[in-house]
Design a protein around this nucleic acid. Structure first.
Length: 423
RNA sequence: AGAGGGUUGGGUGAGUGGCUGAAACCAACAGUUUGCUAAACUGUCGUACGGGUUAAACUGUACCGGGGGUUCGAAUCCCCCACCCUCUGCCA
Protein backbone atom coordinates (compact mmCIF):
# COMPACT_ATOMS: atom_id res chain seq x y z
CA UNK A 1 0.00 0.00 0.00
CA UNK A 2 1.01 3.59 -0.44
CA UNK A 3 2.77 5.51 2.32
CA UNK A 4 0.97 8.49 3.73
CA UNK A 5 4.17 10.52 3.49
CA UNK A 6 4.42 9.58 -0.16
CA UNK A 7 1.00 11.16 -0.65
CA UNK A 8 1.82 14.22 1.44
CA UNK A 9 5.16 14.90 -0.21
CA UNK A 10 4.18 14.19 -3.77
CA UNK A 11 0.48 14.91 -3.81
CA UNK A 12 0.38 16.04 -7.44
CA UNK A 13 2.41 13.09 -8.65
CA UNK A 14 0.30 10.54 -6.81
CA UNK A 15 -2.87 12.18 -8.03
CA UNK A 16 -1.72 12.17 -11.63
CA UNK A 17 -0.68 8.55 -11.30
CA UNK A 18 -4.02 7.44 -9.92
CA UNK A 19 -5.81 9.30 -12.64
CA UNK A 20 -3.72 7.46 -15.20
CA UNK A 21 -5.23 4.34 -13.65
CA UNK A 22 -8.70 5.82 -14.01
CA UNK A 23 -9.28 5.88 -10.25
CA UNK A 24 -12.52 7.69 -9.62
CA UNK A 25 -12.54 10.44 -7.00
CA UNK A 26 -8.79 10.31 -6.59
CA UNK A 27 -8.57 13.83 -5.10
CA UNK A 28 -11.25 13.10 -2.54
CA UNK A 29 -9.61 9.78 -1.59
CA UNK A 30 -6.21 11.40 -1.11
CA UNK A 31 -7.69 14.23 0.92
CA UNK A 32 -9.43 11.70 3.13
CA UNK A 33 -6.15 9.92 3.69
CA UNK A 34 -4.45 13.09 4.80
CA UNK A 35 -7.38 14.10 6.99
CA UNK A 36 -7.44 10.69 8.66
CA UNK A 37 -3.71 10.79 9.20
CA UNK A 38 -3.96 14.27 10.73
CA UNK A 39 -6.66 13.00 13.04
CA UNK A 40 -4.57 9.99 13.91
CA UNK A 41 -1.62 12.17 14.87
CA UNK A 42 -3.78 14.52 16.89
CA UNK A 43 -5.41 11.65 18.74
CA UNK A 44 -2.09 10.02 19.41
CA UNK A 45 -0.69 13.24 20.88
CA UNK A 46 -3.64 13.52 23.22
CA UNK A 47 -3.56 9.88 24.18
CA UNK A 48 0.18 9.86 24.79
CA UNK A 49 0.01 12.94 26.96
CA UNK A 50 -2.71 11.62 29.22
CA UNK A 51 -1.13 8.19 29.34
CA UNK A 52 2.10 9.81 30.48
CA UNK A 53 0.19 11.47 33.29
CA UNK A 54 -1.36 8.17 34.34
CA UNK A 55 2.04 6.49 34.29
CA UNK A 56 3.46 9.19 36.54
CA UNK A 57 0.66 8.76 39.05
CA UNK A 58 1.07 5.00 39.08
CA UNK A 59 4.74 5.34 39.80
CA UNK A 60 4.03 7.73 42.63
CA UNK A 61 1.56 5.29 44.13
CA UNK A 62 4.19 2.59 43.97
CA UNK A 63 6.68 4.76 45.81
CA UNK A 64 4.16 5.84 48.43
CA UNK A 65 3.08 2.24 49.09
CA UNK A 66 6.67 1.22 49.53
CA UNK A 67 7.21 4.00 52.05
CA UNK A 68 4.10 2.96 53.92
CA UNK A 69 2.18 6.14 53.16
CA UNK A 70 -0.99 4.34 52.22
CA UNK A 71 -3.46 7.19 52.82
CA UNK A 72 -1.62 9.46 50.41
CA UNK A 73 -1.56 6.68 47.85
CA UNK A 74 -5.29 6.20 48.10
CA UNK A 75 -5.81 9.93 47.71
CA UNK A 76 -4.02 10.24 44.39
CA UNK A 77 -5.43 6.95 43.18
CA UNK A 78 -8.83 8.58 42.96
CA UNK A 79 -7.55 10.93 40.28
CA UNK A 80 -6.79 8.01 38.02
CA UNK A 81 -10.40 6.94 37.77
CA UNK A 82 -11.42 9.77 35.51
CA UNK A 83 -8.16 9.63 33.56
CA UNK A 84 -8.83 5.99 32.80
CA UNK A 85 -12.10 6.86 31.13
CA UNK A 86 -10.41 9.42 28.95
CA UNK A 87 -7.62 7.05 28.00
CA UNK A 88 -10.12 4.41 27.03
CA UNK A 89 -12.02 6.83 24.79
CA UNK A 90 -8.89 8.15 23.16
CA UNK A 91 -7.55 4.66 22.70
CA UNK A 92 -10.72 3.61 20.92
CA UNK A 93 -10.71 6.69 18.78
CA UNK A 94 -7.09 6.11 17.86
CA UNK A 95 -7.62 2.47 16.90
CA UNK A 96 -10.64 3.33 14.86
CA UNK A 97 -8.86 6.12 13.02
CA UNK A 98 -5.90 3.88 12.34
CA UNK A 99 -8.16 1.13 11.02
CA UNK A 100 -10.11 3.53 8.84
CA UNK A 101 -6.89 4.88 7.43
CA UNK A 102 -5.55 1.43 6.71
CA UNK A 103 -8.80 0.30 5.12
CA UNK A 104 -8.74 3.35 2.88
CA UNK A 105 -5.10 2.83 1.93
CA UNK A 106 -5.91 -0.76 0.99
CA UNK A 107 -8.30 0.54 -1.65
CA UNK A 108 -5.66 2.67 -3.38
CA UNK A 109 -3.61 0.97 -6.11
CA UNK A 110 0.06 1.62 -6.69
CA UNK A 111 1.15 4.78 -8.45
CA UNK A 112 2.24 3.93 -12.00
CA UNK A 113 5.74 4.73 -13.17
CA UNK A 114 6.04 7.78 -15.40
CA UNK A 115 6.59 5.58 -18.48
CA UNK A 116 3.24 3.84 -18.06
CA UNK A 117 0.87 4.91 -20.83
CA UNK A 118 -2.60 6.16 -19.99
CA UNK A 119 -5.37 3.88 -21.11
CA UNK A 120 -8.44 1.94 -20.17
CA UNK A 121 -7.94 -1.60 -21.39
CA UNK A 122 -5.61 -4.11 -22.98
CA UNK A 123 -6.05 -2.32 -26.30
CA UNK A 124 -4.15 0.67 -24.96
CA UNK A 125 -1.07 -1.32 -24.03
CA UNK A 126 2.08 -0.27 -25.78
CA UNK A 127 3.99 -2.78 -27.90
CA UNK A 128 7.62 -2.34 -26.94
CA UNK A 129 9.10 -4.87 -29.31
CA UNK A 130 8.35 -7.92 -31.40
CA UNK A 131 10.75 -10.78 -31.92
CA UNK A 132 10.84 -13.78 -34.23
CA UNK A 133 8.82 -14.71 -37.23
CA UNK A 134 5.31 -16.00 -37.16
CA UNK A 135 5.37 -19.48 -38.67
CA UNK A 136 3.44 -20.13 -41.85
CA UNK A 137 1.69 -23.42 -41.22
CA UNK A 138 0.26 -25.95 -43.61
CA UNK A 139 -3.43 -26.27 -44.49
CA UNK A 140 -5.09 -28.40 -41.88
CA UNK A 141 -3.19 -26.88 -38.95
CA UNK A 142 -4.96 -27.38 -35.64
CA UNK A 143 -5.39 -25.44 -32.40
CA UNK A 144 -3.74 -27.11 -29.44
CA UNK A 145 -7.00 -28.44 -28.00
CA UNK A 146 -7.30 -30.57 -31.10
CA UNK A 147 -3.62 -31.51 -31.13
CA UNK A 148 -3.65 -32.78 -27.55
CA UNK A 149 -6.51 -35.11 -28.45
CA UNK A 150 -4.92 -36.24 -31.67
CA UNK A 151 -1.71 -37.22 -29.90
CA UNK A 152 -3.41 -38.11 -26.59
CA UNK A 153 -1.06 -36.09 -24.39
CA UNK A 154 -3.41 -33.90 -22.33
CA UNK A 155 -6.88 -35.03 -21.28
CA UNK A 156 -9.46 -32.53 -20.09
CA UNK A 157 -12.27 -35.06 -19.83
CA UNK A 158 -10.33 -37.15 -17.36
CA UNK A 159 -9.67 -33.99 -15.37
CA UNK A 160 -13.38 -33.28 -15.31
CA UNK A 161 -14.03 -36.77 -14.03
CA UNK A 162 -11.65 -36.64 -11.13
CA UNK A 163 -11.81 -32.92 -10.29
CA UNK A 164 -13.65 -30.56 -12.65
CA UNK A 165 -13.23 -28.24 -15.59
CA UNK A 166 -9.89 -26.51 -15.85
CA UNK A 167 -7.90 -29.30 -14.22
CA UNK A 168 -6.25 -31.14 -17.10
CA UNK A 169 -4.52 -34.51 -16.86
CA UNK A 170 -1.13 -34.62 -18.57
CA UNK A 171 -0.28 -38.03 -20.00
CA UNK A 172 2.77 -39.68 -21.48
CA UNK A 173 4.76 -37.22 -23.58
CA UNK A 174 2.46 -34.46 -22.35
CA UNK A 175 3.51 -35.11 -18.76
CA UNK A 176 7.15 -35.34 -19.77
CA UNK A 177 6.92 -32.04 -21.61
CA UNK A 178 5.68 -30.42 -18.40
CA UNK A 179 8.53 -31.85 -16.39
CA UNK A 180 11.08 -30.89 -19.04
CA UNK A 181 9.89 -27.29 -19.14
CA UNK A 182 9.95 -26.98 -15.35
CA UNK A 183 13.49 -28.30 -15.19
CA UNK A 184 14.62 -26.17 -18.10
CA UNK A 185 13.20 -23.02 -16.52
CA UNK A 186 14.71 -23.79 -13.11
CA UNK A 187 18.13 -24.60 -14.57
CA UNK A 188 18.14 -21.38 -16.56
CA UNK A 189 17.23 -19.36 -13.48
CA UNK A 190 19.96 -21.02 -11.44
CA UNK A 191 22.46 -20.17 -14.14
CA UNK A 192 21.26 -16.56 -13.97
CA UNK A 193 22.03 -16.41 -10.26
CA UNK A 194 18.66 -17.13 -8.69
CA UNK A 195 18.43 -19.32 -5.60
CA UNK A 196 15.85 -22.05 -5.84
CA UNK A 197 13.05 -22.09 -3.28
CA UNK A 198 10.45 -24.78 -2.80
CA UNK A 199 7.72 -23.08 -0.82
CA UNK A 200 4.44 -24.33 0.62
CA UNK A 201 1.54 -24.02 -1.78
CA UNK A 202 -0.94 -23.16 0.94
CA UNK A 203 -0.51 -19.87 2.75
CA UNK A 204 -2.10 -18.10 5.68
CA UNK A 205 -4.07 -14.89 5.69
CA UNK A 206 -1.11 -12.68 6.63
CA UNK A 207 0.72 -13.80 3.50
CA UNK A 208 -2.32 -12.99 1.39
CA UNK A 209 -2.27 -9.45 2.75
CA UNK A 210 1.48 -9.17 2.37
CA UNK A 211 1.51 -9.47 -1.40
CA UNK A 212 -1.85 -7.84 -2.00
CA UNK A 213 -4.19 -10.71 -2.80
CA UNK A 214 -6.16 -9.73 0.27
CA UNK A 215 -8.36 -7.95 0.92
CA UNK A 216 -10.75 -8.01 -2.04
CA UNK A 217 -9.42 -10.82 -4.16
CA UNK A 218 -10.27 -13.70 -1.85
CA UNK A 219 -12.82 -14.81 -4.43
CA UNK A 220 -9.98 -15.62 -6.81
CA UNK A 221 -8.24 -18.03 -4.44
CA UNK A 222 -9.21 -21.48 -3.32
CA UNK A 223 -9.63 -21.56 0.44
CA UNK A 224 -9.25 -24.54 2.76
CA UNK A 225 -11.85 -23.65 5.35
CA UNK A 226 -10.95 -26.22 7.98
CA UNK A 227 -7.50 -24.71 8.38
CA UNK A 228 -8.08 -21.19 7.06
CA UNK A 229 -5.43 -21.53 4.38
CA UNK A 230 -5.36 -20.26 0.82
CA UNK A 231 -4.03 -22.21 -2.17
CA UNK A 232 -1.50 -19.97 -3.83
CA UNK A 233 -2.41 -18.32 -7.13
CA UNK A 234 1.30 -17.82 -7.83
CA UNK A 235 4.63 -18.60 -6.16
CA UNK A 236 5.02 -14.84 -5.77
CA UNK A 237 2.90 -15.11 -2.63
CA UNK A 238 4.93 -17.58 -0.55
CA UNK A 239 8.32 -16.49 -1.89
CA UNK A 240 7.84 -12.76 -1.41
CA UNK A 241 6.36 -13.41 2.03
CA UNK A 242 9.58 -15.12 3.06
CA UNK A 243 10.76 -11.55 3.54
CA UNK A 244 7.75 -10.29 5.48
CA UNK A 245 8.75 -8.55 8.73
CA UNK A 246 12.39 -8.76 7.80
CA UNK A 247 15.11 -6.13 8.01
CA UNK A 248 17.87 -7.06 5.58
CA UNK A 249 21.29 -5.52 5.48
CA UNK A 250 22.16 -3.62 2.37
CA UNK A 251 24.80 -6.09 1.29
CA UNK A 252 22.15 -8.84 1.15
CA UNK A 253 20.62 -7.02 -1.83
CA UNK A 254 19.65 -7.94 -4.39
CA UNK A 255 17.89 -11.10 -3.31
CA UNK A 256 17.12 -13.35 -6.25
CA UNK A 257 14.82 -16.31 -5.72
CA UNK A 258 13.17 -18.69 -8.11
CA UNK A 259 10.52 -21.27 -7.38
CA UNK A 260 8.43 -23.76 -9.22
CA UNK A 261 4.92 -24.32 -7.90
CA UNK A 262 1.55 -25.34 -9.14
CA UNK A 263 -0.78 -22.34 -9.11
CA UNK A 264 -4.48 -22.34 -8.34
CA UNK A 265 -6.96 -19.79 -9.57
CA UNK A 266 -10.70 -19.92 -9.31
CA UNK A 267 -11.06 -17.52 -12.26
CA UNK A 268 -14.60 -16.81 -11.14
CA UNK A 269 -16.58 -15.25 -13.94
CA UNK A 270 -13.76 -15.06 -16.43
CA UNK A 271 -14.65 -17.92 -18.74
CA UNK A 272 -15.54 -17.19 -22.33
CA UNK A 273 -14.85 -17.94 -25.94
CA UNK A 274 -11.13 -17.25 -25.74
CA UNK A 275 -10.27 -19.54 -22.91
CA UNK A 276 -10.45 -22.92 -24.52
CA UNK A 277 -7.98 -25.65 -23.86
CA UNK A 278 -4.85 -24.56 -22.07
CA UNK A 279 -5.52 -20.85 -22.41
CA UNK A 280 -6.99 -20.62 -18.93
CA UNK A 281 -6.88 -23.22 -16.19
CA UNK A 282 -7.73 -23.55 -12.52
CA UNK A 283 -4.49 -25.37 -11.84
CA UNK A 284 -1.31 -24.78 -13.78
CA UNK A 285 2.44 -24.91 -13.33
CA UNK A 286 4.68 -21.90 -13.22
CA UNK A 287 8.25 -21.01 -12.45
CA UNK A 288 8.43 -17.59 -10.84
CA UNK A 289 11.38 -15.31 -10.23
CA UNK A 290 11.34 -12.80 -7.38
CA UNK A 291 13.84 -10.09 -6.59
CA UNK A 292 14.23 -7.78 -3.63
CA UNK A 293 16.38 -4.79 -4.54
CA UNK A 294 17.67 -1.45 -3.40
CA UNK A 295 15.22 1.28 -4.47
CA UNK A 296 17.85 2.82 -6.74
CA UNK A 297 18.26 -0.43 -8.65
CA UNK A 298 14.74 -1.69 -9.17
CA UNK A 299 14.12 -0.36 -12.66
CA UNK A 300 17.46 -1.58 -13.89
CA UNK A 301 16.47 -4.93 -12.39
CA UNK A 302 13.09 -4.85 -14.09
CA UNK A 303 14.78 -4.45 -17.45
CA UNK A 304 17.16 -7.31 -16.73
CA UNK A 305 14.28 -9.55 -15.67
CA UNK A 306 12.47 -8.67 -18.86
CA UNK A 307 15.56 -9.57 -20.91
CA UNK A 308 15.92 -12.78 -18.96
CA UNK A 309 12.37 -13.86 -19.75
CA UNK A 310 12.81 -12.91 -23.39
CA UNK A 311 15.93 -15.06 -23.47
CA UNK A 312 13.84 -18.07 -22.41
CA UNK A 313 11.37 -17.45 -25.21
CA UNK A 314 14.18 -17.09 -27.72
CA UNK A 315 15.68 -20.40 -26.63
CA UNK A 316 12.29 -22.01 -27.03
CA UNK A 317 12.16 -20.50 -30.54
CA UNK A 318 8.82 -18.84 -29.95
CA UNK A 319 7.86 -15.56 -31.63
CA UNK A 320 6.88 -13.05 -29.00
CA UNK A 321 6.18 -9.43 -28.29
CA UNK A 322 6.65 -7.31 -25.21
CA UNK A 323 3.93 -4.98 -24.00
CA UNK A 324 4.16 -2.12 -21.58
CA UNK A 325 0.83 -2.28 -19.80
CA UNK A 326 -1.27 0.85 -19.66
CA UNK A 327 -2.67 2.32 -16.46
CA UNK A 328 -6.02 0.63 -16.90
CA UNK A 329 -4.63 -2.87 -17.52
CA UNK A 330 -1.93 -3.02 -14.86
CA UNK A 331 -2.25 -5.05 -11.72
CA UNK A 332 -3.34 -3.28 -8.56
CA UNK A 333 0.02 -3.47 -6.82
CA UNK A 334 2.35 -2.82 -9.75
CA UNK A 335 4.14 0.38 -10.72
CA UNK A 336 5.30 -0.91 -14.10
CA UNK A 337 4.51 -4.18 -15.81
CA UNK A 338 5.81 -5.78 -18.97
CA UNK A 339 3.74 -8.58 -20.42
CA UNK A 340 5.33 -11.10 -22.73
CA UNK A 341 3.03 -12.66 -25.27
CA UNK A 342 3.86 -15.52 -27.58
CA UNK A 343 2.19 -16.01 -30.91
CA UNK A 344 0.28 -19.25 -31.10
CA UNK A 345 -0.14 -20.04 -34.75
CA UNK A 346 -2.86 -22.67 -34.46
CA UNK A 347 -5.37 -20.30 -32.91
CA UNK A 348 -3.67 -17.28 -34.53
CA UNK A 349 -3.54 -15.34 -31.29
CA UNK A 350 -1.06 -13.72 -28.92
CA UNK A 351 -1.01 -15.47 -25.56
CA UNK A 352 0.27 -13.87 -22.39
CA UNK A 353 2.95 -16.13 -20.93
CA UNK A 354 4.73 -13.82 -18.53
CA UNK A 355 4.17 -10.70 -16.57
CA UNK A 356 7.17 -8.92 -15.09
CA UNK A 357 6.48 -6.18 -12.56
CA UNK A 358 8.16 -3.70 -10.29
CA UNK A 359 6.11 -3.03 -7.16
CA UNK A 360 8.51 -0.44 -5.79
CA UNK A 361 7.66 -0.09 -2.07
CA UNK A 362 4.00 -1.00 -2.46
CA UNK A 363 4.37 -4.63 -1.35
CA UNK A 364 7.33 -3.86 0.89
CA UNK A 365 5.23 -1.43 2.88
CA UNK A 366 2.64 -4.10 3.57
CA UNK A 367 5.29 -6.73 4.18
CA UNK A 368 7.39 -4.46 6.39
CA UNK A 369 10.26 -5.54 4.21
CA UNK A 370 13.14 -3.18 4.91
CA UNK A 371 16.88 -2.99 4.75
CA UNK A 372 19.47 -1.20 6.78
CA UNK A 373 22.18 0.67 4.94
CA UNK A 374 25.53 2.02 6.04
CA UNK A 375 23.84 5.04 7.58
CA UNK A 376 22.03 2.61 9.95
CA UNK A 377 18.68 3.86 8.78
CA UNK A 378 16.03 1.37 7.82
CA UNK A 379 14.09 1.95 4.66
CA UNK A 380 11.68 -0.02 2.52
CA UNK A 381 13.14 -2.22 -0.19
CA UNK A 382 11.67 -2.68 -3.64
CA UNK A 383 10.13 -5.98 -4.72
CA UNK A 384 9.78 -7.36 -8.23
CA UNK A 385 8.64 -10.56 -9.78
CA UNK A 386 8.01 -12.23 -13.08
CA UNK A 387 6.81 -15.48 -14.54
CA UNK A 388 9.70 -17.40 -15.99
CA UNK A 389 7.54 -18.97 -17.21
CA UNK A 390 3.94 -20.12 -16.94
CA UNK A 391 3.62 -23.48 -18.64
CA UNK A 392 0.21 -24.00 -20.24
CA UNK A 393 0.33 -21.31 -22.89
CA UNK A 394 3.96 -22.09 -23.64
CA UNK A 395 2.86 -25.66 -24.22
CA UNK A 396 0.00 -24.46 -26.40
CA UNK A 397 2.35 -22.35 -28.51
CA UNK A 398 4.99 -25.05 -28.81
CA UNK A 399 2.39 -27.55 -29.94
CA UNK A 400 0.68 -25.23 -32.39
CA UNK A 401 3.72 -23.53 -33.88
CA UNK A 402 5.75 -26.69 -34.39
CA UNK A 403 3.06 -28.95 -35.78
CA UNK A 404 3.67 -30.73 -39.06
CA UNK A 405 1.58 -33.30 -40.85
CA UNK A 406 4.03 -35.89 -39.48
CA UNK A 407 4.07 -34.80 -35.88
CA UNK A 408 5.09 -32.00 -33.54
CA UNK A 409 8.74 -31.03 -33.36
CA UNK A 410 10.10 -30.10 -29.94
CA UNK A 411 12.44 -27.11 -29.50
CA UNK A 412 16.08 -28.23 -29.55
CA UNK A 413 16.81 -26.84 -26.14
CA UNK A 414 14.34 -29.30 -24.62
CA UNK A 415 15.55 -32.46 -26.32
CA UNK A 416 17.92 -33.46 -23.56
CA UNK A 417 15.25 -32.80 -20.94
CA UNK A 418 12.57 -34.67 -22.85
CA UNK A 419 14.37 -37.72 -24.08
CA UNK A 420 12.51 -37.39 -27.40
CA UNK A 421 12.50 -34.89 -30.26
CA UNK A 422 8.95 -34.94 -31.50
CA UNK A 423 5.47 -35.98 -30.55
C1' A B 1 -6.38 -36.21 17.78
C1' G B 2 -5.48 -36.66 23.61
C1' A B 3 -2.23 -35.19 27.98
C1' G B 4 1.58 -32.13 29.79
C1' G B 5 5.42 -28.25 29.20
C1' G B 6 6.80 -23.85 26.66
C1' U B 7 6.95 -18.81 23.57
C1' U B 8 11.30 -12.63 26.63
C1' G B 9 15.77 -8.07 22.29
C1' G B 10 20.38 -10.67 16.40
C1' G B 11 21.43 -15.45 19.64
C1' U B 12 21.56 -17.97 24.61
C1' G B 13 18.87 -16.77 28.84
C1' A B 14 17.32 -14.11 34.00
C1' G B 15 13.02 -11.85 35.59
C1' U B 16 9.22 -11.87 43.55
C1' G B 17 2.43 -7.21 40.25
C1' G B 18 5.57 -1.18 41.23
C1' C B 19 12.77 2.79 39.41
C1' U B 20 12.32 -3.48 34.03
C1' G B 21 12.57 -1.40 27.50
C1' A B 22 13.88 -5.33 30.29
C1' A B 23 19.89 -8.55 34.17
C1' A B 24 23.93 -11.49 32.47
C1' C B 25 26.55 -13.73 28.59
C1' C B 26 27.49 -14.26 23.27
C1' A B 27 27.44 -11.99 18.56
C1' A B 28 27.84 -7.20 16.05
C1' C B 29 29.69 -2.10 15.61
C1' A B 30 33.11 2.04 17.18
C1' G B 31 37.43 3.34 19.87
C1' U B 32 42.04 2.59 23.06
C1' U B 33 46.38 -0.35 23.75
C1' U B 34 50.45 -4.18 22.39
C1' G B 35 54.70 -4.55 15.92
C1' C B 36 50.40 -7.66 12.18
C1' U B 37 46.59 -11.81 13.23
C1' A B 38 44.65 -12.39 17.96
C1' A B 39 43.66 -10.93 22.95
C1' A B 40 42.37 -7.23 26.71
C1' C B 41 39.80 -2.83 28.03
C1' U B 42 36.04 1.16 27.14
C1' G B 43 31.73 2.62 24.75
C1' U B 44 27.52 1.74 21.43
C1' C B 45 24.13 -1.82 20.46
C1' G B 46 15.57 -3.17 19.26
C1' U B 47 11.15 -1.62 16.50
C1' A B 48 6.98 1.48 15.46
C1' C B 49 4.23 5.90 15.88
C1' G B 50 4.22 11.03 17.85
C1' G B 51 6.55 15.87 19.75
C1' G B 52 11.06 18.54 18.77
C1' U B 53 15.32 20.17 15.45
C1' U B 54 17.63 22.84 9.03
C1' A B 55 19.59 18.11 10.68
C1' A B 56 20.88 16.22 15.26
C1' A B 57 20.49 16.39 20.48
C1' C B 58 16.46 15.70 23.40
C1' U B 59 11.59 13.84 24.55
C1' G B 60 6.39 11.07 24.90
C1' U B 61 3.67 6.55 24.01
C1' A B 62 3.35 1.49 22.71
C1' C B 63 5.54 -3.29 22.08
C1' C B 64 8.35 -9.48 26.36
C1' G B 65 3.90 -14.99 20.40
C1' G B 66 -1.39 -12.48 19.03
C1' G B 67 -6.01 -10.64 21.16
C1' G B 68 -9.00 -9.52 25.42
C1' G B 69 -9.55 -8.97 30.92
C1' U B 70 -8.25 -7.90 36.36
C1' U B 71 -5.43 -3.66 38.74
C1' C B 72 -3.82 3.01 40.41
C1' G B 73 0.12 -0.12 38.05
C1' A B 74 1.07 -6.48 34.16
C1' A B 75 6.75 -9.64 30.87
C1' U B 76 4.73 -11.30 35.77
C1' C B 77 -2.33 -12.85 37.51
C1' C B 78 -6.98 -14.63 34.50
C1' C B 79 -9.49 -15.97 29.63
C1' C B 80 -9.35 -17.00 24.25
C1' C B 81 -6.29 -18.00 19.93
C1' A B 82 -1.72 -19.24 17.25
C1' C B 83 2.79 -21.62 17.23
C1' C B 84 6.80 -24.82 19.35
C1' C B 85 8.51 -29.09 22.38
C1' U B 86 7.69 -33.99 24.95
C1' C B 87 4.72 -38.44 25.54
C1' U B 88 0.51 -41.34 23.53
C1' G B 89 -2.29 -42.27 18.97
C1' C B 90 -2.32 -42.12 13.59
C1' C B 91 0.48 -41.97 9.16
C1' A B 92 3.64 -40.86 3.61
Amino acid sequence: MLLVNQIRENYAGVLAGLQKRNVHNAPSILDQVIALDDLRKLTQAQRDQIQAEANTISKQIGILMKEGRAEEAVAIRERTTQIKEQIKDLEEQYSKTEEDLKALLYTIPNVPHSSVPAGKSAEDNEVVLEYGTIPALFDGKLPHWELIKKYDIIDFDLGVKITGAGFPVYKGKGARLQRALINFFLDEALAAGYMEIQPPILVNEDSGYGTGQLPDKEGQMYFATADQLYLIPTAEVPITNLYRDVILSEEDLPIKNVGYTPCFRREAGSWGAHVRGLNRLHQFDKVEVVQITHPDKSYETLESMSSYVQGLLQKLELPYRVLRLCGGDMGFTSALTYDMEVYSAGQERWLEVSSVSNFETYQANRLKLRFKGEDKKTQLAHSLNGSALALPRIVAAILENNQTPEGIKMPKVLHAYLGFESI
